Amino acid sequence: MIRSLLSGDMPRSKFLGAILLVILICLAFAPFLFPGVRTVDTAARICIFVVLVASYDLLLGYGGIVSFAHTMFFGIGAYGVALSSTHLGRGFDSLIIGAGLGAILAAALALVIGLFSLRVRAIFFAMITLAVASAVAVLVSQISSVTGGEDGLTFKIPRELGPAFKFGKDLFGGELLGVKLNGKLLTYYLIFGGSLILFLTLLRIVNSPFGRVLQAIRENDFRAEAIGYRVVIYRVTATCLSAAVAALAGSLYAIWLRYVGPDTTLSMEIMIDILLMVVIGGMGTIYGAVIGATLFVLAQNYLQNLMSGLSSMTEGLPILPELFSPDRWLLWLGVLFILSVYFFPTGVVGRLRGQR
């Protein structure tokens, strides 16, 4: 059953399988294992970024397509939910309509970009996507009457997903293992469940005949074209699928934050983070998205705390307290990335699977 659920793509490493299982258990029971606003927020972000990174891996790792427009699709999904909730009310139907329209619009935009630019060399396609993404980010910032401009949009989600909504009073007295049974808990499991379904869908896609053809095109597009596969059609399809999943991840992100703005969904910093997560986890593996997103989000949220502790422990020693200052966390994040690339050139997943 597990093999079928994973589309036959097993971890192929006991150690990797154990790591993935631990991450799954931690995310599945995060509100109970790690109670606290910050830890649950970190777990939700990991779930969302796993999907976002996996959708980009479909493009880069399996299709060999370099794109800088992935945050644009992510933002389209987020703004779709925000705008529908603002104008249609705070019901679940607004969330579904916003997420669906966001995914459709993202796929349509990816189709247009792909048809006009995937026939050119890879570097030109990357530059075109960068230009389009930058133009959309500027447009969103300028039309403040619709998008809220730089301030973004704050919107209301269904009452059942808000912290004021309580359930389970008759069975558990409103608490389970010390955790309040409220709408925030339901929101987390909506994020977790949606992310798990999207991840398994991507795993199914890359292990289908379509995914295998995509890998063949990545290895040698001229040979794939020669034996009868329409390379452009496959690449455009992969771009549309990747964009739609990224938009759905953006919808989940907007639901979790109840806010959307240019800095949270459309910034180039997020695009760079996605690239780093793909490289750290391992391109062309899908499982690499789980490892990469988990390591990177944990580092973003807790590296400063770790460095603060190290700075306090080395107080009184020369140089070290300054070196471990929390203000230098980005420096150490860069050092960790360089070390990961040096020791894991094929990513963590690739190394654990014995790839070179």
Rank of each mutant, 00 (worst) to 15 (best):
S4M: 11
G8D: 03
D9R: 13
M10L: 15
A18E: 05
L20S: 07
L24T: 13
I25H: 01
L27T: 06
A28T: 07
P35K: 02
A43P: 15
R45L: 11
F49P: 09
F49L: 15
V50F: 01
A54Q: 04
A54S: 06
S55R: 02
Y56C: 12
Y56Q: 12
L60N: 08
G61P: 04
G61T: 07
V66G: 04
M72V: 02
F73C: 14
I76D: 04
Y79K: 07
Y79P: 11
A82R: 04
A82M: 09
F92P: 08
L101F: 15
G102E: 00
G102T: 05
A103W: 00
A107M: 06
A108F: 05
L115K: 15
S117Q: 13
R119S: 09
V120W: 13
A122W: 07
I123E: 13
A126H: 07
M127L: 15
I128N: 06
A131H: 05
A137N: 14
S145F: 14
T147Q: 04
G152E: 00
F155Y: 01
K156I: 12
E160M: 14
G162E: 14
F165M: 07
F165T: 10
K166M: 13
K166C: 03
F167L: 14
G168R: 13
D170P: 11
F172D: 02
E175F: 10
V179D: 01
N182G: 07
G183A: 06
Y189N: 07
S195I: 04
L200M: 02
L200R: 03
L203D: 01
L203Y: 03
R204W: 10
R204C: 12
V206H: 06
S208I: 06
S208L: 07
R212H: 12
A216C: 09
I217Q: 00
E219P: 09
N220T: 10
A226T: 10
I227H: 10
G228P: 03
R230A: 09
V231E: 08
I233R: 15
T237V: 10
A238K: 00
C240S: 08
A246C: 15
A246T: 09
L248Y: 00
D263G: 11
T264P: 06
L266P: 01
E269P: 07
I291Y: 00
A293M: 05
T294W: 00
T294R: 02
L295G: 06
L298A: 11
N305S: 15
S308L: 14
E315G: 01
P321A: 06
L323D: 03
P326C: 03
L333Y: 13
G334H: 00
L336M: 08
I338Q: 08
P345V: 09
V348G: 03
